[in-house]
Amino acid sequence: MNNQEATAYLEQLIGRSLRLYTSDSRIFVGQMKCTDKDRNIILALTYEYRQPSEATIRKTVESSGNPSAQVPLMSRYVGLVVVPGQYITRIEYEESQFSQGTVVP
C-alpha cells in the first residue's frame, strides 16, 4: 500500500465508528478523529466496555442455575480518548445506517 492509498483508506474512516480492543481486554467504541503512523487512534464520544470478572460470572450462573446465562458487559462513557497503537490488539469498523456502502473496510 502506498502512502496515497493508505491516506485515502484511513481518511474514509474519519468520523466512523470503530471498536478498539486493547491488550487489557477492554473494548473502546467511538468515532475516529485522528490517527498516525504509530497507529495511535483518537476516538470521540467513546464508551468503554469490559468483560465481567470471573466472580461475577460465577455468581450469575449460580444464582440463575443456567450455565449459559448471559452476563452483560460493563460499560461506561469515557468521551474523548487516545488509544496508543502499541496497546491495540484488534480494530473493528462498525457500519451505521448512514454510512452504508460509503466505506471500504
Binding site: 493508505a6 484511513l10 474512516l13 490517527t35 498516525d36 503512523k37 483518537i42 469498523y93
Partner: peptide
Amino acid sequence: VWDITERFTQASQALKIGQLVK
C-alpha cells in the same frame, strides 16, 4: 462489523512520520 486490524495496520505503516490523518 468488519475486522479491519490488518488493513488498518498496513495503512498506518504506510503513513509518513509526523503525518496525521484527521
